[in-house]
Design a protein around this nucleic acid. Structure first.
Lengths: 213, 213
DNA sequence: GCCGGTAGTAAACATCCGCTGACATACAAT
DNA sequence: ATTGTATGTCAGCGGATGTTTACTACCGGC
């Protein structure tokens, strides 16, 4: 017992975590798995990502994916759910005016906002499952509705919704071209450099979008 | 010889093609394969598309993919080359002014312009091969340069290029949201309905973009 | 201490994937 | 008609993929 045959780290030195970290923690491994899957799915897409890749990146046994998420599809759905949460939370935190500022910050912001960029990329990835696709669609629809409402007042008509969705398309397109393609100079443009064009764009496309300056 | 044992159609009735169609035509099968691969790759992405799928859709034996394109990667590269050609040809055919009109027509135009939409989607798909990715990048860069030049005069600086790439991002984003997500009302918007917002957008984002009306 | 249930592991399974080589057939030149 | 070559077919290989199963190690409560 004192010298376990296969143990790499005997419990002599405690871990660096605030509380001593358990070696076996279902919630934690679930979280690590989810995090690894998010980045992989967002970067490479569903089909190009293997469960073994995810497990290795998470430092976890492959079989645990099936234990905690039933199957690969379930893991993807869980990732998408976290992405939906991220997007919704971000929506609430942003002021109603300053749409362009919000987009620029989300797209080109500091590295700690990377989570939101991953979430946006995830919303563009499809696993082929119709039910999950419907989830993606409904979230993006809600986002565009929110944007249209913020720009033009309550209960936007189809024309206003269309304009909001065009702005949304711009946002998603920029994120894609930046992270997946690395198209220069767009890919290395700072938040500040993005702001001016985006302000022009939003102001022109969205009816009644205030000019906060 | 007169009654071939496995022949399905003896050459009694000639095919409907203008000249009698040969039963074995390398160029034609190559073309059919390329066509099937384009739509599949554009719709489902590289990894999610199998060579067996492509061959079946083309009505052709799987092994012929390797015969004519070496491997799956080669087939994808050939698809991308046709997409590049399509985009370049389309660029030349469009007048310098009326950028918004051009985008609207390409995005929401008649069904016979579907080839260009497939080409645009293909440019967003990656096979993971660095050399092919560089091709995608260079083409999109050239497109944005052309757009910036058309809008603001020769030799655009980085700021002008950035603005053109934002418009390009809008274009690609709209195509994605329409065909891959089916986001309403954007997905079913007609060319005419897209035109007004796009005119506003282009006019605001691109410096010196003329107002042709 | 020990013991039940939970967390994690290892190995294998069934299937699918891209690809290849040997073979069969159609075409064209002779 | 014969023959050489281009074109297409077929079966299968080696490997990767998602998933399952049988097993071990750990933890917390008694």
């Amino acid at each position: 017992m004192t010298a376990s045959p296969a143990g790499v780290d005997p419990p002599a030195t405690c871990e660096d975590a605030p509380a001593q970290r358990r070696r076996r923690d279902a919630g934690r491994t679930r979280q690590v798995l989810l995090e690894a899957a998010r980045t992989r799915f967002a970067r490479d897409g569903y089909a190009a990502t293997t469960v073994r890749d995810i497990a290795e990146e998470a430092g976890v046994n492959v079989a645990l994916i099936n234990r905690y998420f039933t199957n690969k599809e379930g893991l993807f759905e869980a990732c998408l759910t976290t992405a939906v949460t991220d997007v919704r939370r971000d929506e609430n935190g942003v002021p109603v005016d300053g749409i362009a500022e919000g987009i620029a910050r989300r797209i080109g912001g500091a590295a700690d906002d990377d989570r939101l960029r991953v979430a946006l990329l995830l919303l563009l990835r499809s696993s082929g499952d119709d039910r999950v696709d419907e989830l993606r669609r409904s979230v993006l629809h809600a986002v565009s509705e929110k944007m249209a409402t913020a720009a033009g007042g309550a209960d936007p008509d189809d024309a206003a919704l269309l304009r909001a969705q065009i702005v949304l398309a711009t946002t998603l397109g920029i994120v894609t071209l930046r992270s997946s393609l690395g198209l220069q100079p767009l890919a290395s443009a700072t938040e500040q450099q993005l702001l001016d064009p985006l302000r022009d764009l939003v102001q022109a496309v969205l009816p009644g979008a205030g000019t906060p300056s």
